[in-house]
Design a protein around this nucleic acid. Sequence first.
DNA 1: TCCTACAATGGACTAAGTCTAAGTCAAGAA
DNA 2: TTCTTGACTTAGACTTAGTCCATTGTAGGA
Lengths: 137, 137
Amino acid sequence: MSDLLERLRARGWRMTSQRRVVAEVLAGEHVHLTADEVHARAAERLPEIARATVYNTLGELVSLGEVVELSTDGRAKRYDPNAHRPHQHLVCTECGTIRDVRPSGDPLAVLPDSERYGFTVSKVDVTYRGRCPSCAG
Amino acid sequence: MSDLLERLRARGWRMTSQRRVVAEVLAGEHVHLTADEVHARAAERLPEIARATVYNTLGELVSLGEVVELSTDGRAKRYDPNAHRPHQHLVCTECGTIRDVRPSGDPLAVLPDSERYGFTVSKVDVTYRGRCPSCAG
DNA sequence: TCCTACAATGGACTAAGTCTAAGTCAAGAA
DNA sequence: TTCTTGACTTAGACTTAGTCCATTGTAGGA
């Protein structure tokens, strides 16, 4: 059914009912859930699933590069299943809603060498903040 | 002694020994401390200071716009006293060291209207990630 | 079908931060 | 200077998010 499940199986990821349910929750909705929300949705289908299992599974999906971890608000981390194409995030400062966005150009390019202090810069996370249409009321 | 203390007093901020010590800790070192580190350094000078007081004071300094709160790593928030001039952050993925950097150009400009979904975008946080010279070994 | 290494469980534990009720004190008024 | 009062501080309980670990379960190969 889902590309994600296919890819995981192809990579030899051991498939269990718990892992399947977590992967399906992520693949099913293109929103940015917290670990607790993933657990709640997973538990609707598999009531005995443990919180620790959800954390373990999310951690693995992140290591495999299939899911991106966001720590936008200093509160609970959120998990973004849209890892296959590069994007940035637009966050509402009122309600916390997150949208995926694609800025034009390469955000890395604007950091001059003189500002790199010898770091090997490999990644840039850009978070645009503002009020969403409903909150701007 | 410090600009920060001056400004706070000028704004009618009620000065107590606890608040003074917290402000001095922040003004004194241009590093990015966690709340706990601020508490530890404050307690060297004022042993009875409560953790809650440090949290309250940091929260107020953030509201006043004198300090910027960073939630880079999903762990403890860090506090950046360098709020008077705009800058972004370069974070080491190994050791967590943070450096202030100034990208060229306006990071807001690269987000086309078509990607704003009706949001009133007011702020952009850019985090460059990579390995610092010591960790790149 | 049987093994066994890998995965799941649940409950205790930790870290970071918030809340609350009671006590304290800075700063303006007299 | 002393008084007054509302704002500030305190200690500790509480909450939230996440980790750890010893035990139990099971996917998938032989």
